[in-house]
Nucleic acid binder design. Sequence first.
DNA 1: CGTTTCACTATGTGGTCGTATTGTCAAATA
DNA 2: TATTTGACAATACGACCACATAGTGAAACG
Lengths: 211, 211
Amino acid sequence: MSDQPNARELKKQRTRQRILDAAITVFAEAGFEAASMGSIATRAGVKKALVQYHFETKLNLWQEAVDALWLQLEVLDNRLPTLPEAPNAEQERGYIREVFRQLIRFAKDHPAWVGVMFREAATPGPRLDWLVERHLRRNFNDGIKLISMAQEHGLLPPGSPLHIIHIISGALTYPLLVAPLTQRVTGVDMTSDEELDITVDMLMGMLSPKS
Amino acid sequence: MSDQPNARELKKQRTRQRILDAAITVFAEAGFEAASMGSIATRAGVKKALVQYHFETKLNLWQEAVDALWLQLEVLDNRLPTLPEAPNAEQERGYIREVFRQLIRFAKDHPAWVGVMFREAATPGPRLDWLVERHLRRNFNDGIKLISMAQEHGLLPPGSPLHIIHIISGALTYPLLVAPLTQRVTGVDMTSDEELDITVDMLMGMLSPKS
DNA sequence: CGTTTCACTATGTGGTCGTATTGTCAAATA
DNA sequence: TATTTGACAATACGACCACATAGTGAAACG
């Protein structure tokens, strides 16, 4: 057969990946409409026609870029701690805190993920439909499951998991989203590890068992 | 002089306002780059050249649209309750709760405001610079002042007002931002008054005095 | 080593973008 | 009523867009 690592095939895959990386960045920064095949090509250091050659259409490039982006989520999954079998209260709080820390750090380390996520989530349309069926529904269900489990362990206050996940997600991602604004107004970089930890600690304090 | 309500001048101002309203909507939905003078003209029911005639450039139209949008904030200011002189604990909690409710309801009733806000806040650039100096710095300082005051009254937990305002803002606006996504995944409309109230109550519970 | 394959390039097309120029015609003015 | 004004329209321009087509040249292959 022909799956020996051809020098030709290898180079092809490398350029493909270069284009994909550039596409992820540009799509996240500019949004689908404002991003252009030309700017993606330039950022990847290739000719515009080559992007078209490898990915046919802009929509197809976007979908493949999104898939590549979501692949990185598996890295996050592997970083998330697992709750010990018979944990004490101390261990439980440490667990949920660590989950929050990993979540917000992942979001910080993958601004493209946050960018794409928010740009598409805010606008109904075929791209959101595709994204929901392809990735987001599963992500969402996983999140709900995590919240429910944490509630059963008394780690989170009771109440609708749907609303809790919105509040937590908002509290964790908002500082990253508007970081350019905050930076401009206050000079503080809310994406630094120190500020992120403060945010997590504050949220933990708010979510702490029974007032 | 000439400020009697000319029939000519009156019609002019009416078309100007029509264009401005259309611009607000389109800019909020599509973002600056993806919004086009043509689509704004079409939505306003006028010819594209007329938009150019009234507002010269796209950037200028955007700035005037943003100014018109921020004018609506004054309505919010008037709706916000004032804290009684010597309030008891009950009144104080009612006060902060009402502030949250008015904030989230304003955001719901003015999706264009939220749209513009987030699209620009997330992307550094000259438009964000302009927006900060023109409106956001003042809005931000007002917010910080409100948080600090609430803290002094024991209405909010102690800690950096900067982080608290981020958490609260995120918790309140995130559900609205990703509402199209949530709707698509769960069928629940997080922008309905009932769901908004649940969110506010839950946030109030988290922020309640001393755990 | 001659032939074929294909990653990549040069060039083109129809469309839309923001912007500029010129024309038109009814209302305001004197 | 004769003239001027100005809100609005018609048209054009160069730039850029996504996408299409016809090469080209070096690596792969028989």
